[in-house]
Write a protein that binds this DNA or RNA. Structure first.
Lengths: 158, 158
DNA sequence: GCAAAATAGTTTATATATATACTATAAGTG
DNA sequence: CACTTATAGTATATATATAAACTATTTTGC
């Protein structure tokens, strides 16, 4: 994958008079976008997309969950999960099993190939994130996490 | 738009043993997702998507730029911009004008309707962001911005 | 027990987004 | 001037993502 997009350009608007809330928000968007792009490039080594990695990582923690449950964990729609599982099962990473007790749900399991890939990709992903945030001191990391946690809780009210 | 997705569920993995880098990153993703969802709902009042809002806001600052230039500012591909402008121009918000000096580029301009919408939607968007980040103190906002700026710069190296 | 409601998946239409290949035009070089 | 290269935009195939409509089951309430 040879990306057409460069994130090296100086961020627009970011230094301008746009209020401290907006400025913080624009930096958050910028960091998110840049990081996602790097992660996408990284996952390309495993022939995985970001969405597919998320499925793989979740299933490697907890197999046999339904598509509905997976959708809730990933915060996406069940229709989206349906398509994701279609593609991943076509690639031999995941399989749908039926529940003898209840014929509605599909119970999701990793294939042997999916397990193998997860064992390789999940730790590499963690290490990749760790490396890319190593420009922050432990104090900055802790502060970032705490502020984002506060923000997460306060947004919940709106 | 009646969203099927709830972000109120307790964040998975976030409290677990996943390292301080990963934990901060997962909170960043969570805040980003939640905020984007709220912004999407908000923009629904103007019949705008997030991508279309970005185009509108940029063009309201600087008209007559090319699709290529717009793509670079938005950090997306020119193919993506082509489709976005197709849809926005079908909705009467934007128009493509030709450059008499160079017949390749399209110079993008807001229509009267686009201008009107931008005048309404852009300040409302800023206010919306400000409100949703009002759970943080000015000190926290400043710290967040500074840490994210540091992170942005340090990611650039990788 | 049976009709209504809830739950699980799938499908469809639409909007993003990428990479890639293609067309048209312009610029540079011999 | 002709040939190559670069630039701007478009078209196509694929992958996400949503909302909404649909099917198939199960559960609930009378």
């Amino acid at each position: 994958m040879e990306t057409e997009i460069t994130t090296e350009a100086p961020p627009q608007q970011l230094g301008e008079a746009c209020g401290s809330s907006m400025s913080a928000w624009l930096y958050l968007v910028r960091v998110y976008d840049k990081m996602q792009r790097h992660l996408m490039d990284h996952l390309d080594n495993y022939d995985l997309t970001l969405a597919q990695y998320d499925v793989l990582a979740l299933l490697s923690q907890e197999q046999g969950i339904t598509q509905q449950a997976l959708a809730q964990k990933l915060l996406v729609t069940k229709g989206n999960v349906c398509g994701l599982i279609d593609r991943m099962s076509a690639h031999g990473l995941v399989e749908r099993r039926s529940d003898p007790e209840d014929r509605r749900p599909n119970l999701l399991h990793l294939t042997a190939e999916g397990e193998r890939l997860a064992k390789e990709a999940v730790p590499a992903y963690s290490e990749f994130v760790r490396e890319h945030m190593s420009g922050l001191t432990p104090q900055q990391l802790a502060a970032l996490r705490e502020i984002l946690q506060t923000l997460d809780n306060s947004i919940r009210q709106h």
